[in-house]
Simulated assay, not measured.
Amino acid sequence: MSESTDAAACGRRGGRTVSKSTPDEVMELACGLPLTRSVLRSVVADATPGQLGVLADLFRAENASRTESRRARLIRNAGFPCVKGFDGYDWGMASFPADWGREQLMDLGFVDRAEDLVLYGDVGCGKTHMAIATGMLACERGMPVRFFTASSLVMRLRRARDENRLDAELRAIGRARLLVIDELGYLPIDIDGARLLFQVVADSYEKRSVVFTTNLEFGRWGEVFGDGDMAAAVIDRIVHHGRIVRFRGESYRNSHSLMR
């Protein structure tokens, strides 16, 4: 191929534009792909500019496809009850701590630091929506997430224990970087279930972030765990590396109800 012909091929190939890339850029794009590095390095070293462009475009497309597949898999495995994001979210009912707010929530730095969040307040004010949207955002950024209601988590753990696979279930939950426990306190939990729930919280301490949604202030968490000392131990862990976002206002479901 002549120099002029190759230069033209570098710009367009088969009716489409081909990117211009250096050997180092191509190697970098292939970094996460299952390719033999020595073979690829040899091919890249002998490639023309047009061939480098084709390789770069191929690797970019493959990386984009893998990223999207991973995102979809993380969202599917998280167990969200529905898909919710922050677009159109009503922030007016959420009150953040003075030194921590919406920007810090959405940059997910608290997940990197294994810090906890308690979304506390009135029913229907957007606590679960915020928890799901935060989890979705984490999945979008490649973080494993698990979502449970408190009652469904207890039932899952109880079933795993009865089937002699509790350790395996705890390990599976422990692979998440963000764990959401929704509706804590909405349904009663017996002391046996409370101990199982405590085990998850204790195992998560300083290892992964836990987001709780609840309509109960800390002083009433003893009602959930059926044991004041156990509740105090949970609260102590949350308060050490955690924050509270408070919700106040009229229930969104009531204000948008057809029965008015």
Rank of each mutant, 00 (worst) to 15 (best):
S19L: 14
K20I: 10
K20A: 10
T22S: 08
P23N: 06
G32D: 08
S38G: 11
R41L: 15
A45I: 06
A45F: 10
A47Y: 00
Q51R: 05
L52Q: 00
L52D: 01
D57Y: 00
L58Q: 03
R60C: 00
N63Q: 15
N63V: 00
R66I: 05
A72R: 07
L74A: 09
L74Y: 04
A78R: 12
A78P: 08
G79A: 00
V83F: 13
G85C: 06
G85R: 03
D90H: 11
P97A: 14
P97L: 11
G101Q: 02
Q104L: 10
Q104S: 10
D107W: 05
A114E: 01
L117H: 07
Y120E: 07
G121D: 05
V123S: 15
G126M: 12
T128L: 01
I132V: 04
I132T: 05
G135W: 00
G135V: 02
V145W: 07
V145M: 06
S151Q: 07
D162A: 14
E163K: 15
N164W: 14
A168E: 10
R171W: 06
A172V: 05
G174T: 04
R175S: 15
R175K: 15
A176L: 14
R177M: 11
V180T: 02
I181S: 01
L184T: 05
L184E: 11
Y186A: 10
L187E: 07
I189F: 04
F198M: 08
Q199Y: 02
D203V: 04
Y205T: 02
T213S: 12
N215W: 05
W221N: 08
G228N: 13
D229Y: 11
V234R: 02
D236W: 03
R237V: 08
I238K: 03
I238D: 02
V239E: 10
I244F: 14
S251M: 02
R253F: 02
R253M: 02
H256E: 13
H256A: 09
